[in-house]
Amino acid sequence: MILLLAVACGLVAGMLRARLQQRPYRIAQLEAIELVVLGVVPQLVAFHIPGTAARFPEALVPPLLLISQLLLLAFVWLNRRRPGFWLLGSGVLCNLLVIALNGGWMPIAPQTVAQIALAPQQWQAGERFGLSKDRVMPAEEIRLAFLSDHLVLPWWRVAFSPGDVLLAAGVFYLLWAHGGAQEDIKEV
């Protein structure tokens, strides 16, 4: 949800920019949108739809996650000349890297869980965190821990990764750029 705020803020910022500069808000068409659908629909089934997420075999989560991340990376590559996509690509890569090096799960340390869960004592190392793509792992066992879900907002029970920060920055910049001159958004 926190990343979707970046979409809202970017859109508002872009439209405001267009209004202030007395330009229309221009929208470039993205390439290969079907890769996003192919990459995300399985994740919706595995993580977001309660009826299917609860039944989804955990053993299938790592390959599903890795394949979907690769599809999203392909989408980024095909749109790499659009503004913001290098940031988006960096974000996907960071998350993909830490997931790939930690058994196909996004690792989250017990110390981080303690900051965001209402009942942190119920989460043990080795357990999946709810129905998410996260697995609780001892901090000392997490590879590339600095890329894992360890960033926390004190006023919101959310843990996110540096990759997520890059994703938010990328989508904000993309939507903001569409409020600028045509040169800002055309292919270079």
């Binding site: 990343l3 979707l4 995300v40 994740q43 993580f47 999203l72 974000g91 709810g130 998410s132 994703l167």
Partner: peptide, 12 residues
């Protein structure tokens, strides 16, 4: 895209 790349809602 964001939902797939890094924005799940993990109900703990």
């Amino acid at each position: 895209f964001l939902l797939g790349a890094g924005a799940p809602a993990a109900e703990g």
